[in-house]
């Protein structure tokens, strides 16, 4: 059984007790008169049933309310992310024009600062997208749009986008992928790989190696692997890494920021795409995440 958060366990317990009360009540009501010939028992039965129904109704009312709140939250995040993305676009494109030399030559210090500002802008854009996906996921409003995707191209694009971040950490990043097409949701797949790659970059000490590899499997699935030579995940932490807000101890000590949402989102997205995610890790040696996806997104998922 999957580990449930405490409030869930409480809810399950409440439901079991409530159902128990209702069953006892029904039993009393239905018990044939000769065995228990008193007038009070049916009344007790009714009281038991009512006291069992009350918490059930309150739970379902709260579930409906929760759904409304999630919806409102997701609408709010959608709107505010649009408002954040628009000025960010101008900032990012201006920096790109500086970088490309469109505005004239820059001195070394300007190049350095513009590069760093650009990395920050990219990171902010990614954070907004992650937030948006997360809120849509939790409001169950994440719509899948399956499309033919050239995997090698996509992986290369993601690598290019993270190149400056990797360069600052003095990492080498390699991509090895056959030229294969798969039919899945591009935005979700991109979000999955970006999260795994940026984790690999963040959680590997300077001068590391990060490798992205893809291959087709015989069972009509595609495996995408992201390996690093980083800090690794200690064995005791391994069962928890996909838990929302969870961050392993050994990375909390490092000077990296993180929300503990990345892998939680990644796992949920992989499942939405009909796939599975697994990992192998050894402390101070590195980690490999493997995402196995159907080459064609099953229609019942779409």
């Amino acid at each position: 059984m999957p580990k449930l958060p405490p409030y869930h366990r409480l809810r399950v317990l409440t439901v079991i007790l409530a159902v128990g009360l209702i069953l006892c009540g029904a039993l009393l009501l239905l018990t044939p008169a000769p065995v228990l010939a008193t007038d009070v028992l049916p009344l007790v039965g009714i009281i038991l049933i009512v006291s069992g129904l009350a918490p059930l109704l309150s739970i379902s009312a709260r579930a409906a309310e929760h759904k409304l709140v999630e919806r409102a939250k997701s609408e709010f995040v959608s709107l505010s992310s649009h408002e954040l993305r628009t000025p960010l676009t101008s900032i990012k494109w201006t920096l790109e024009m500086f970088k490309a030399g469109t505005t004239g030559p820059l001195n070394l210090m300007q190049i350095e600062l513009v590069n760093r500002a650009h990395v920050s802008a990219i990171r902010m854009a990614q954070t907004i997208t992650t937030m948006l996906m997360l809120s849509r996921l939790e409001a169950k409003r994440l719509k899948l749009i399956p499309r033919s995707i050239k995997l090698q191209e996509l992986l290369q694009t993601i690598k290019d986008e993270q190149q400056e971040h990797a360069r600052r950490m003095k990492h080498t990043v390699t991509v090895v992928s056959p030229e294969l097409e798969l039919r899945t949701d591009e935005q979700l797949l991109k979000e999955i790989v970006i999260n795994l790659l940026s984790n690999a970059i963040k959680y590997t000490p300077e001068g590391g190696h990060i490798h992205i590899a893809a291959k087709t499997e015989p069972d009509d699935t595609v495996s995408i692997m992201v390996s690093d030579s980083g800090y690794g995940i200690p064995a005791v932490e391994q069962p928890h890494i996909f838990t929302k807000f969870y961050r392993a101890e050994n990375i909390q000590d490092k000077e990296t920021s993180g929300t503990g949402l990345g892998l939680y989102l990644v796992q949920a997205l992989v499942e939405l795409l009909g796939g599975v995610i697994s990992f192998q890790s050894q402390e101070n040696k590195g980690t490999t995440f493997t995402v196995k996806l159907p080459a064609t997104l099953p229609t019942q998922h779409a």
Partner: peptide, 29 residues
């Protein structure tokens, strides 16, 4: 657009949309 894409392939086809980009994630190049 800075709205996340919600057009499926059929809609794209029928409206003749060649590409859909989220601006904040797109490089000028």
């Amino acid at each position: 657009s800075n709205l996340t894409e919600d057009m499926d392939e059929a809609t794209r086809m029928s409206l003749g949309v060649s590409e859909y980009f989220v601006k904040s994630e797109l490089d000028l190049s």
